[in-house]
Design a protein around this nucleic acid. Structure first.
Lengths: 413, 413
DNA sequence: AATAGTTAATAAAAATTTTTATTAAATAGT
DNA sequence: ACTATTTAATAAAAATTTTTATTAACTATT
């Protein structure tokens, strides 16, 4: 017996590796291995199967599992149907003790999803009137929102593995620092939240959080090397190499929007340079292009001249409905995007490229235009081995991806 | 006692993980951990230190080390000087039982270096009259050259951990296949060599092999995210993310030479596209540019008009000696290179970029011109966190890097 | 229905590993 | 020179884990 109140253990206790090497910690390490294995398995598993994976004998596993059951961490799930031989009892984690909090903080929106180990949301809270600004008051607002969501969900803190947070701007996931927000008193935002919430907190860039969502529940689930292009009003990129997110030395990686691809003849970008992709291929740019075309006398069926406040999502919808001008403009953007992606394919040889963000809603004509652009820059071999697809994830992607970051940190996914 | 002839064990025996889970393999796994730890430590270490790292008690480590000493794998290195307490005996690997073979196969050159665990060459063999071609005869020639080098070195095969080979062209390090050479009968070249030499063989692209050399013995030794640009007659790139080489899904990654950066107005490249970096920034391009300038009437101090067969290395030397035209041309190339690298810095946020290959010999004026080019495309933050340096590795880089690939595969470095 | 074949789970015995205690070897201070 | 202190190495005892043997549960076949 290695601790007193067996029914009061926190999930985190097992997953924390910084323990001394006495006997207690040995058993905890073995238990952690079992928990990780059970978490990754989508079906309940038998003692011999666990023993085989953990490389420990069946009697030992029996003892460990019994201990974990006493602690309410593991439950028996009855017998399993087999073709022959005695049917084994199978075991799985007690779902109600393994929750993760995923938070998405965007400029005008904050959302919390509390998810189980399979990333199903068991509680959702969002605020679409939120306004992000770099003030201590806003930092408190974010903290309060998360804290309130946790209380409202009625999930005990001891059953929460950790909090993942994806936010706008540049973020260094290793140091837990946001470069644009909430870095007061030189205290990393992740550390601030962790202290206040009394939970482990991991933060990441919003685009990378969406990339992780694609990696764990999206179409690139089993693909090791891929790229997720997040195009909505702006454009961002998550690079996945060997199933891991590329963050670079300081968390700045993926600044695809400022890739220069047309020489220096393009529009001036907010970054101060000319010819950035963001000025040509983005929702912002689409609105601009559309308005310019209309002003130049071109016609659009569904968005007649004179209509005010045309938003890029409307243009994409119109294109999907077959309206000529919006479709032509999107194809134009697709070709440019393709040419830029061709360079990246040559560099990184990804197996798949996912178009995520609002642009994922654009019809196949858009992907076709990207493909056509690829040939301008991409080499034959890497191109032949790379698929371009649109994301199918719709709702909650950011918050679920943020939760996934926690599960990945603890190697539970 | 877990095997008979203790003095006849091969080093490979320990490092191979595919063993059943009986007691013998348990001890071998523990021994492998000790070997890996000793290999990585550059000084002999004591029993308590090993015990602490391997997370096993001192008596157990004592037994394992004694067994390894009986097998001649480990030697005692006397007592260590300490400040207080009893002085411990310290242990290290028997150097003479841990060799690696590194092979570099280029178009007109083949070289074998046999190295110890510290990547010091103990035997070198090279052939500069070699001509690489995709024929079975040439494949046999490569095999014979390696085989002959091993025999000549008088190192027993059982003391060789494995063979690493870096070669020109596209290579998939995972499948062991070269796309350009020696893929006869659908047998991966690595498998062919492995079968014939009766040794584990790992192959890689020549540029990536140089990149690994930089990572293990070069200036980026302790840098996790970096880029090694290999510029000689052509231009290649090794991308290192989280201390690991990026190969992409099919080993095509790093095709930097065909990155398009000047729109489609450049020269026609051998890849069929226009505007590739290779047509502007490479030894080839430098020769072309120089000849064009001379033909257009420009003057060069050290390479007067009329001289035949001017090679790019000579132009670099002349530039280093202060000759104006060569220096101006190199600066022109550096600026373009910098602009291309700026995009990559935005994408990957490397901490360091190493200029390797023949161009690493170019003076600081060249690096300065690269830096000046960076500002055209690179964003402020990632740029501020990225250094540009020249490689200091000179000789044997390819073969040593190839040997390093083996050590990395076995986690000995 | 009995039996052979298969896999699971438990019990008992054997082996291994760790913990604790003891001895050894060294330094520094009185 | 002796003693206290520190770390290393070994020995003996205690705990843990694995191996082997046995029993249990189930299917398919004769």
């Amino acid at each position: 017996m290695f601790y007193q109140n067996k029914k009061n253990m926190t999930t985190r206790y097992f997953l924390n590796n910084n323990l001394s090497s006495d006997n207690e910690s040995r058993q905890i390490k073995q238990s952690a291995k079992i928990i990780r294995f059970l978490a990754k398995s989508d079906v309940p598993v038998s003692l011999p199967v666990i023993a085989n994976h953990i490389k420990v004998s069946v009697p030992t596993i029996t003892k460990l599992i019994n201990d974990l059951m006493e602690q309410d961490m593991v439950v028996e799930d009855g017998k399993k149907e087999t073709d022959n031989g005695r049917k084994p009892s199978v075991y799985s984690l007690t779902k109600s003790h393994f929750y993760t909090v995923g938070v998405e903080v965007l400029l005008r929106r904050i959302q919390v999803n509390i998810t189980d180990l399979n990333l199903n949301s068991v509680f959702i809270s969002k605020n679409t009137t939120f306004e992000l600004e770099n003030s201590e008051a806003c930092r408190e607002e974010v903290l309060a929102f998360i804290d309130h969501a946790i209380s409202e969900s009625d999930i005990a803190k001891k059953d929460i593995i950790g909090v993942g947070l994806g936010m706008t701007g540049r973020v260094n996931g290793v140091t837990g620092r946001s470069y644009n927000f909430f870095g007061f008193d030189d205290l990393p935002f992740a550390d601030f939240l962790s202290k206040e919430l009394d939970l482990p907190v991991f933060i990441e860039n919003d685009t990378r959080v969406i990339g992780v969502a694609e990696l764990v529940i999206g179409k690139v689930k089993n693909i090791n090397n891929n790229i997720i292009v997040n195009i909505s009003r702006g454009v961002g990129m998550t690079i996945i190499v060997n199933r891991k997110m590329v963050t670079g030395g300081n968390g700045f990686a993926g600044e695809f929007g400022h890739m220069q691809f047309v020489g220096n003849e393009g529009r001036l970008c907010i970054c101060g340079k000319k010819g950035c992709l963001d000025t040509e291929v983005s929702g912002k740019a689409l609105e601009l292009l559309f308005n310019e075309s209309i002003a130049a006398g071109e016609q659009s069926l569904m968005l007649p001249a004179g209509k005010e406040n045309i938003r890029y999502d409307d243009i994409i919808s119109a294109a999907n409905d077959g309206d000529y001008l919006p479709m032509a403009l999107l194809q134009q953007q697709g070709e440019k995007l393709g040419a830029a992606l061709g360079n990246i394919i040559n560099l990184l040889n990804p197996e798949m490229i996912v178009i995520a963000g609002k642009y994922s809603r654009a019809g196949s004509f858009f992907r076709d235009s990207i493909r056509s652009g690829l040939y301008k820059t991409g080499l034959k071999d890497p191109l032949a081995n790379c698929q371009i697809i649109s994301s199918e994830l719709v709702q909650n992607t950011g918050a679920i991806g943020a939760a996934a970051i926690v599960l990945r940190k603890y190697d539970l996914i």
